[in-house]
């Protein structure tokens, strides 16, 4: 029997292509990346460039036609009182929603990270994943049902003899309204509900990395529950909290469906963008408005990166 050759003879085109790619790994890499980069580069970055371009155009106030000349006029319009109002209102809402999400998410994340085992762990994971992924609009709609004046909240409050309390809350100036579904408080509740899972997951991931021995050490050294939380758990879990806050903050910043369906007609950045490009036909101002969240998020991400949030993602 003859020895088989060390290198097999090539059996056709497929072999030759494979060999060529093996010998030129850079070309292979380029081939793999070409299509995705072309897509993301042209479609996505191209669009972002178009957005920037549009934001430097302006609209002719009399004819309503977009003037395609470079100007900073459109950006200057952002500083009008009514537009500044929109930006401040959105920022305030995003900050409050983020804070509330962090507070509500903590016990869930902590329990899932520290105590849930086996079946319970899977249940908690699915319990957070399913609401995160399930239909956004359906969730918003569910809250419209809940918060409606004739809905379940009013029914439950009256059934429990707390109707006067609900009325008192709704009578609060600034946050109240005719019913929960037409008040800023309603908008806030729905925002918190919708973005909560985005806070739980990174928080849980970072809490899982806090070694149990540290908590025992803290207890051995005489720390109370509160002290352990403040000086051990919170600093170690902070990157996860910040990572979660990137999502809750950014998502609230750009959302325009929720304030449109639940709340007063007070505008948020997202809603302003949507209305300006649609009914108003003022694409330059809409584009300039859309640049605002980009800048805010860039600043936010820079700070988050400094605080080590990306290691927790």
């Amino acid at each position: 029997m003859r020895d088989a050759p060390a290198i097999l003879p090539d059996r056709g085109l497929a072999d030759r292509i494979s060999a060529a790619l093996w010998r030129h790994p850079k070309a292979f890499l380029g081939l793999l990346l070409a299509l995705p980069l072309l897509w993301l580069g042209v479609v996505y970055l191209g669009s972002l460039a178009a957005l920037l371009l549009q934001s430097f155009y302006s609209i002719d106030e009399f004819s309503g036609v977009v003037k395609e000349e470079f100007t900073l006029k459109t950006y200057a319009e952002l500083f009008r009182a009514q537009n500044l109002d929109i930006i401040v209102r959105t920022l305030l809402m995003s900050a409050l929603v983020t804070l509330a999400c962090a507070v509500i998410a903590f016990p869930i994340a902590y329990f899932a990270a520290r105590y849930a085992k086996g079946r319970w762990k899977a249940l908690f994971y699915l319990g957070v994943m399913l609401p995160l992924w399930s239909s956004y609009l359906v969730k918003v709609y569910a809250w419209k049902l809940i918060l409606a004046k004739e809905g379940i909240v009013t029914w439950a409050a009256e059934g429990a003899g707390m109707g006067f309390f609900l009325d008192a809350v709704l009578a609060l100036p600034g946050v109240g309204g005719n019913s929960l579904s037409t008040s800023p408080m309603g908008t806030f509740i729905v925002f918190v509900y919708i973005w909560l899972p985005y806070m739980i997951l990174p928080m849980q991931a970072s809490l899982e990395r806090v070694p149990g021995s540290m908590l025992e050490a803290a207890a051995d050294l005489g720390a109370s529950g509160g002290q352990t939380f403040r000086t051990v758990i919170l600093p170690l879990a902070l990157p996860g909290v910040i990572a979660g806050s990137i999502f809750t903050f950014s998502l609230t910043l750009g959302d325009y469906i929720i304030p449109q369906i639940i709340g007063t007609s007070a505008r948020f950045i997202g809603l302003a963008v949507y209305q300006l490009q649609g009914t108003a036909g003022n694409i330059p101002l809409a584009a300039a408005f859309a640049v605002v969240p980009i800048i805010i998020m860039l600043i936010y991400l820079t700070i988050a990166k400094r605080m080590g949030a990306f290691d927790a993602l």
Binding site: G254, D255, Y256, Y274, Q277, I283
Partner: peptide, 25 residues
């Protein structure tokens, strides 16, 4: 980062960016 950006930035930005591009072109 480029892959992550479309979902890291709020949807309204992606939407408005595409809208601007359709309008420009």
């Amino acid at each position: 980062l480029l892959i992550l950006l479309p979902i890291a930035l709020p949807g309204v930005i992606t939407g408005m960016a595409l809208r601007s591009a359709f309008s420009v072109m």
